[in-house]
């Protein structure tokens, strides 16, 4: 399945299928942004210096 999602993305690019390409990448980007956000929140929980001094 890993391959299939990538394959769809590749084919979407080759076929100039804007909806599909943008859709896949928006989904992937959302996950990565969410993960980074999670990392920041976890860091604030783990390290009082982040919480108290700001970043």
């Amino acid at each position: 399945m890993l391959g299939e999602l990538g394959q769809e993305l590749l084919l979407a690019f080759l076929d100039a299928d804007q909806n599909t390409a943008a859709g896949i990448l928006v989904c992937v980007t959302t996950v990565i942004i969410a993960a980074n956000f999670l990392a920041d929140v976890l860091m604030a929980v783990l390290d009082p210096r982040v919480r108290l001094k700001g970043r």
């Binding site: 399945m1 890993l2 391959g3 299939e4 999602l5 990538g6 394959q7 993305l9 590749l10 992937v28 996950v31 990565i32 993960a35 980074n36 999670l38 990392a39 920041d40 976890l42 860091m43 783990l46 390290d47």
Partner: peptide, 30 residues
């Protein structure tokens, strides 16, 4: 351990990079 784990936690975001890289790798298990 709590001190040591922090640099790892702060890079959780990078762990999702396979999401962008792997989809483009050949489909071996599909």
């Amino acid at each position: 351990a709590r001190h040591a784990v922090m640099p790892i936690v702060s890079t959780i975001g990078f762990d999702f990079s396979p999401l962008t890289n792997c989809p483009l790798s050949p489909r071996f298990w599909c």
